[in-house]
Amino acid sequence: MTDQPLISWEWVAENLDLIAERLVEHLALTGIALAVGTAISFGLAFVIYRRRWLSQPIIQLTGILYTIPSLALFAFLVPITGLSLLSAEIGLVSYTLIILIRNILAGLDGVPPDVREAADGMGYGPWGRLWAVELPLALPVIVAGLRVATVTTIGLVTVTALIGQGGLGQLIVTGLLRPGIFETMIYVGGILSLVLAVVADSTLLVIQRALTPWARARA
């Protein structure tokens, strides 16, 4: 409306606690989704690993889930689980599954057969072999999947503001509701979530390299 600067730093300075609160909510929403998503994905991937015929139905189903637009997925959930954290998390977790499962399986499949045989020869049982030999070797590919899932989830968490679950999207929505549109809130919310995604991605890349000094990162 008036010629105010694009970002009012004064507002930012005065509202650091609000911004921090939204950032923490964003991280929490993302963290819960990734933790639960990873747990479910490992479970499903191990099931597929043992029962190969399950791979197609599980991959197809999670693939369809991934294709459903976020607003639509939240919309399906709201009449059932309400405008709640549960609705947000069910949606967010759903989107991580296909990315994580695919990468876990690709990682496990990438383990050379002679390594498996050597492990068998050393007396590992199937689960012992999976835990001690195959998983560590699959780690770079799994973390690569985790990176994609993390960036995706951070972006999707901005949408959960539309069902009242806070996070940086809340700043965006509130900025949009103010007379004259309060650009500062919109840009702070949008840019911070982008920065968050880039930082999280780089951090995971560093972790991935540190964890697997023997393997060069594939992404």
């Binding site: 960036v151 951070i154 972006g155 999707l156 968490v157 901005t158 949408v159 539309l162 940086l168 999207g169 965006i172 929505v173 900025g175 949009l176 549109i181 650009e183 919109i186 840009y187 919310g189 949008g190 979530s193 982008l194 995604a197 880039v198 991605d201």
Partner: peptide, 17 residues
Amino acid sequence: NIGRAIPSFAILVMVLP
């Protein structure tokens, strides 16, 4: 690749002004 990390909802509202 950085562009891929832009949340679609954020970009939608950010271009509005």
